[in-house]
Design a protein around this nucleic acid. Sequence first.
DNA 1: CCTGTCATGTAAGAAGTTACATGATTCA
DNA 2: TGAATCATGTAACTTCTTACATGACAGG
Lengths: 165, 165
Amino acid sequence: MLGLVAEGPRSGYDLAQVAARSTGYLWAPSRSQIYKVLPRLVERGLARSTAIEQQGRPDKAVYEVTAAGRRTLRAWVETVDDDPDGGAPIFLLKILFGFVSTPDAIRGQIAAYRRLLERNLAAFERQEAGLTEDEPVYSLIALRHGIARARATLAWADEAERLLG
Amino acid sequence: MLGLVAEGPRSGYDLAQVAARSTGYLWAPSRSQIYKVLPRLVERGLARSTAIEQQGRPDKAVYEVTAAGRRTLRAWVETVDDDPDGGAPIFLLKILFGFVSTPDAIRGQIAAYRRLLERNLAAFERQEAGLTEDEPVYSLIALRHGIARARATLAWADEAERLLG
DNA sequence: CCTGTCATGTAAGAAGTTACATGATTCA
DNA sequence: TGAATCATGTAACTTCTTACATGACAGG
């Protein structure tokens, strides 16, 4: 949410739509969740809100990131964790909010993501090799899913590094 | 959790380890969560538990699926939803628990998964085409990620159908 | 006239987490 | 002697969801 606020000044209502579009594939909070978290960002000094009067509607509360908020976001984007709690989507979110940091930091995230993918791929392949004939096809199908995705994502990592220049 | 119990009689402790191995990539509950859910399965008549006495250890509670539990699981596995709440992992879980149902039902899940992937892929490609030059590379990199994975997963769907025979 | 958009929020509850509590056995 | 494995569970907490509450205005 801090990242979405850092993209530009937004109301809670706006945020719900922006989130669905931009991070929606990775993470999308409900409107009620947004209205709970936003005041917390202000409490912690990471964002500030400005009331905007409107006619025939409730006042709009527009949130903006503060300098401290930007620093906090940047620190998060630059923190390297080879096996983050939220899994792969964390890497993608950090990439998406790369604009608060440097291309080098993002290269670091891609490298960490690559390491996770390589570990996962190796684990899947080991499991695949260990499958016996009495096991249902379903296990194999699920394993092949993981393998296909890991390989494709590794290929994407090459492309991503090229795009970063 | 019902699916994991249906694979064979297991204690809560066992379940934590089995989950980490088998569905771990998709979904893995904490031990405390398992101990909360298991009695609920019993309450609903989906599982039954047997106490097993042990020396020097707490009694073991082994859970087994009931006929009603198997029916409930099967109904879930066979329910087709083109855009399930838990996202893509739901399709994989249904495939993994395919042993309670028929290959045809699993083909149906793969087809539904394919439809989701095709919708996502089209949306990503539309977004990619709409990107302007002032947008940060990071948006493009994230989009390419989604595209690469969707395409790879579509190719996996072909393979999965072949494996089902 | 009805649906959708704009706009904020509360209440109740599900789902999940970490840390704590207990305690024997086994292995390096 | 200290860590890991086996084994169950509670307490406190975070995160997140759906449903409810309110109300104007725009467009078909």
